[in-house]
Design a protein around this nucleic acid. Structure first.
Length: 430
RNA sequence: GGAGGCUUCGCCUAGUUCGGUCUAUGGCGCCGCACUGCUAAUGCGGUUUGGGUCUUAAAGCCCAUCCCGGGUUCGAAUCCCGGAGCCUCCGCCA
């Protein structure tokens, strides 16, 4: 949610910013509709407040008269109906304003350019693409080495599900646990939230109504509140703090969470997204920060550097991209992707997306902080980043570290946790 | 699943019987000031949150806010209905 005050005071800059993401004519139309609704809303509030003040005064006079032992006529009933009518109009105006505001995306940061995927900029490339003999892709490697059982996964969950098996399961969880250790050491607070969230948390986090159809909903019993399976733990972290006020000295507040992510992914699959690259359930460790307004943007750099440190310590070749306005998610001011090299496709694939939302998410979720010396609490800035999505990291590790003999070297930092230095073909055994 | 108790300003708490200057008592914490050589102690004052209005800004003023949503009433923390959460007891259970 954007700041309505900014639209009032500096509509031109809002219009310019939003035009990086939307049709300029559409932006201008939406903003004038909002300006009208906002004006209407404030007029109604003025009228309602005045009427309430009048009635309060009347009730006081009544009480005073009664105390003095005088009888007094009861107030007019039609005044009450008139107030109710004004209140109904305000409620409607407020709903219209909210829905008009909630479809507006965030203002892209100054250095974020207009355009879609094609306008993304590669900022930096790290390491060299390894030269690989006997190149196999990750789907073949994981079948050969018995790391992922796609067929049995489909038997259990249907298309889009898989089972990690053997060394594959070890590798997957070694990664998750290694991240958990690293984030803890880096001062993030560990959170294991519920996977099933109330719809209200989805709205608070700003992911509904937009992504309502892209998550799995749980049909409850009659009269029960709706729930859904979380599509990312970002939803849970943000929702957990809705309507809270941070004390000044508790910022920045760093949190991380591990959960599987459940997504309906109704769109068709891509040829370069085979195997575990895109599915209905994948593991991700998410890092998140709540900061003051001053610290927001620089914290983005800090988090990207931090996430990259993880990929570098794994020994992978990757690059950093600054996303164009149209390719970043709508609630973000700026998003930086870390993309890992996939030898089989010759492309880089996103394994982490680190974003700075400014106060856009906080405004929706009602998350503020106290400002010393001021009575006005401000909205925090929120930042989130995957650190990292393991279902894409495992394929990258398999492909980049495969050996000519078909085995895969385990990244050094994971060897203790996986329990081997090298993953080889399992001996025949059912 | 059944029965009962409870939810008030950061925390604890008074107020709910019998509706009326109740945003609401007192304590703790916190902030400011005074006093003291420093600390401590003491005294005085301030301290829910959101919206509107006004202002360069601050202050002020107005409205809402006693778990949430409705209702009754001139008037609701207080009465009625619905919901959520917490606690206790009973039952059931991978």
């Amino acid at each position: 949610m954007l700041d309505i005050d900014l639209i009032r005071k500096d509509r031109a800059s809002v219009e310019a910013g939003l035009s990086k993401r939307l049709e300029p004519s559409e932006v201008s139309r939406a903003l004038s509709a909002i300006a009208d609704l906002d004006k209407q809303r404030r007029e109604l509030i003025g009228e309602i407040d005045a009427e309430r003040a009048r009635r309060k005064e009347e009730a006081r006079a009544f009480a005073a008269a009664k105390a003095a032992g005088q009888a007094i006529e009861a107030g007019a009933r039609d005044a009450k109906a008139a107030l109710a009518e004004l209140e109904e109009r305000l409620a409607q105006t407020q709903r219209d304003l909210d829905s008009a505001m909630s479809v507006l995306p965030n203002l892209p940061a100054d250095d974020v350019v207009a355009g879609g995927k094609e306008a993304n900029q590669v900022v930096q490339v790290y390491g060299e693409a390894p030269v690989i003999e006997n190149l196999r892709d990750h789907v073949q490697l994981s079948s050969d080495l018995g790391l992922v059982d796609y067929e049995r996964g489909v038997k259990l969950g249907g298309s889009g599900f898989w089972i990690y098996t053997g060394w594959g399961a070890r590798l997957e969880f070694a990664l998750v646990n290694w991240f958990i250790d690293r984030h803890f050491a880096a001062g993030y607070q560990f959170m294991l939230p519920p996977h099933l969230l109330l719809d209200s948390a989805g709205y608070a986090a700003g992911q509904f109504p937009k992504f309502y159809d892209e998550v799995f909903h749980i049909a409850g019993e009659e009269g029960e509140r709706g729930r859904f399976l979380l599509p990312t733990s970002e939803t849970a972290i943000l929702g957990a703090y809705q309507n809270e006020i941070f004390e000044t000295d508790s910022l920045p507040h760093r949190v991380y969470a591990y959960t599987p992510c459940y997504r309906s992914e109704k769109a068709g699959s891509h040829s370069d997204e085979r195997g575990t690259v895109r599915g209905h359930q994948f593991n991700k460790v998410e890092i998140f920060q709540f900061t003051s307004q001053e610290d927001g943007e620089k914290t983005l750099e800090e988090m990207v550097d931090y996430a990259e440190g993880l990929v570098r310590d794994l020994g992978l070749h990757f690059r950093r991209s600054l996303l164009a306005a149209g390719d970043a998610s709508a609630s973000m001011r700026k998003t930086i992707d870390i993309e890992v090299w996939m030898p089989s496709t010759g492309k880089y694939k996103e394994i982490s997306s680190v974003s700075w939302a400014g106060d856009y998410q906080a405004r929706r979720a009602g998350i503020r902080y106290r400002v010393p010396g001021s009575k006005n609490n401000k909205f925090v800035h929120t930042l989130n980043g995957s650190a990292l999505a393991t279902s894409r990291l495992v394929p990258a590790i398999l492909e980049q570290f495969q050996q000519p003999d078909g085995s895969v070297l385990v990244p050094e930092v994971l060897r203790d946790k996986v329990g081997t230095d090298r993953i080889t073909k399992p001996s025949k055994r059912k």
